[in-house]
Simulated assay, not measured.
Amino acid sequence: MNIDIHYTFLPHIDAEASLAFYRDALGFEVRRDVGYGDMRWITVGPVGSATSIVLRPPVVDPGVTDAEKQVVLDLIAKGSYGAVTLATDDLDALFDKLVAAGADVISEPADQDYGVRDCAFRDPAGNLLRINQK
């Protein structure tokens, strides 16, 4: 039996800024863009990969209070709410591409003590993206 990761979810606070990052800077394809009222769920993923990220509204439960919603937004902005690790065969080239696109750099490419070479960014919502060298 094979099991694959199909979707993972990350919150967005600005759909257009998220599209510019994931589609334009990272080069992901947009697979779905679904709206409901003032909310959007945008499914993106690497071309040729079955794995997708669903960029979703941060809070959709009508039972969440304004104070609770603010806590979630504060955690997202700190990079403490959502995270994903990507992998590439050319970390330095991807790092340079994201820097040129104006991405928020957290750490430059470096060899880590735990055996990987990686770097880190925050997406427009503040989600942490680590990128490993394959």
Results as ranks from 00 to 15, higher is better:
residue 89 D to W: 05
residue 90 D to A: 12
residue 90 D to G: 06
residue 90 D to L: 11
residue 91 L to I: 14
residue 92 D to F: 04
residue 92 D to I: 08
residue 92 D to P: 02
residue 93 A to W: 06
residue 93 A to I: 08
residue 95 F to D: 05
residue 96 D to Q: 14
residue 97 K to V: 03
residue 97 K to Y: 05
residue 98 L to W: 07
residue 98 L to T: 09
residue 98 L to H: 00
residue 99 V to H: 04
residue 99 V to F: 10
residue 99 V to A: 06
residue 100 A to G: 07
residue 100 A to D: 13
residue 100 A to R: 13
residue 101 A to H: 13
residue 101 A to P: 10
residue 101 A to C: 04
residue 102 G to F: 12
residue 104 D to V: 11
residue 104 D to I: 06
residue 104 D to L: 06
residue 105 V to M: 01
residue 105 V to Y: 08
residue 106 I to F: 04
residue 106 I to Q: 15
residue 107 S to P: 01
residue 107 S to V: 04
residue 107 S to G: 09
residue 107 S to E: 14
residue 108 E to F: 09
residue 108 E to Y: 07
residue 108 E to L: 12
residue 109 P to M: 06
residue 109 P to A: 09
residue 109 P to K: 08
residue 110 A to C: 04
residue 110 A to F: 08
residue 110 A to W: 05
residue 110 A to D: 11
residue 111 D to M: 03
residue 111 D to A: 12
residue 113 D to T: 11
residue 113 D to W: 11
residue 113 D to V: 12
residue 113 D to G: 14
residue 113 D to E: 14
residue 114 Y to W: 15
residue 114 Y to N: 05
residue 114 Y to I: 00
residue 116 V to I: 13
residue 116 V to W: 09
residue 116 V to P: 03
residue 117 R to E: 05
residue 117 R to M: 03
residue 117 R to F: 01
residue 118 D to G: 02
residue 118 D to A: 07
residue 118 D to W: 11
residue 118 D to V: 00
residue 119 C to Q: 08
residue 119 C to V: 04
residue 120 A to P: 04
residue 120 A to Y: 00
residue 120 A to L: 01
residue 120 A to N: 09
residue 121 F to S: 01
residue 121 F to T: 10
residue 121 F to C: 05
residue 121 F to K: 10
residue 122 R to M: 01
residue 123 D to S: 02
residue 123 D to H: 02
residue 123 D to K: 01
residue 124 P to N: 07
residue 124 P to M: 03
residue 124 P to A: 00
residue 125 A to W: 02
residue 125 A to P: 01
residue 126 G to P: 07
residue 126 G to Q: 12
residue 127 N to S: 15
residue 127 N to K: 03
residue 127 N to W: 07
